[in-house]
Amino acid sequence: MSDNNIVLRVEDIHKSFGNNEVLRGISFGVRRGETKVFIGPSGTGKSTLLRCINQLTIPDRGSVWLDGEEVTNSGARINYFRQKIGMVFQNYYLFDHLTALKNVELALLKVRGMSRSEAREKALTELRQVGLEDWADHYPAELSGGQAQRVSIARALAMDPDVILFDEPTSALDPELTREVLEVMKKLALQGMTMLVVTHEMGFACSVATEILFMENGVVAEQGTPNLLMHDPKFTRMKNFIGQFDSYRGD
């Protein structure tokens, strides 16, 4: 792993909420163009980890580095890093009072300082990328969950981020809507976008992930390519976890 390929480095992140230590020292590096997928039982700190990366949650210990610059303890410069680290949330969090187009435009206008026409063009390009150009003038309440999530992906893409964090992007969606969102994410991965994805979608993880990190009790319990984790007999934890899924689903 040559070091100058590493775009995001996470070192020894710890985080507690009260007496509950959610993250107990997480470290990893992400190369440009990589898709890292985090899976594991609920409550093992996967979402907290993503939020620590863009400092929406401040970790107790450890550091995050983007392109060799420290994101943790960066003061007001955090707003620069947050442009470079996009985030997509489970519940979309679209701005309720703005149309799809304006949702994507807002940060371009206010944070990047683009002109109206520049921002509009950029926003339309990103909406086209997620297949929603025709829905540009609709408000969030008029969109399906899948469409809303695709708008929020377009909103993150518009900032030209170095990496996008996906926090359970399909957990609020039914299987059909899940598919349309995953297809967009897959396309992004193939285009070379660097992505960190927290998900329970094993099919997506196995087909798209460069590496799967199985988290349990605040640590990375197993780590490797999908092929390795699924087939190497050395790894058992994740297979057990998926096995529970499968018997629950009845197949």
Binding site: M87, K110, A156
Partner: peptide
Amino acid sequence: GQMIAAQALGMTRAQAIRN
């Protein structure tokens, strides 16, 4: 979530409140 999403895009709190 509205504030969180705004901040995640790089807006300051003041920008998020205003916009």
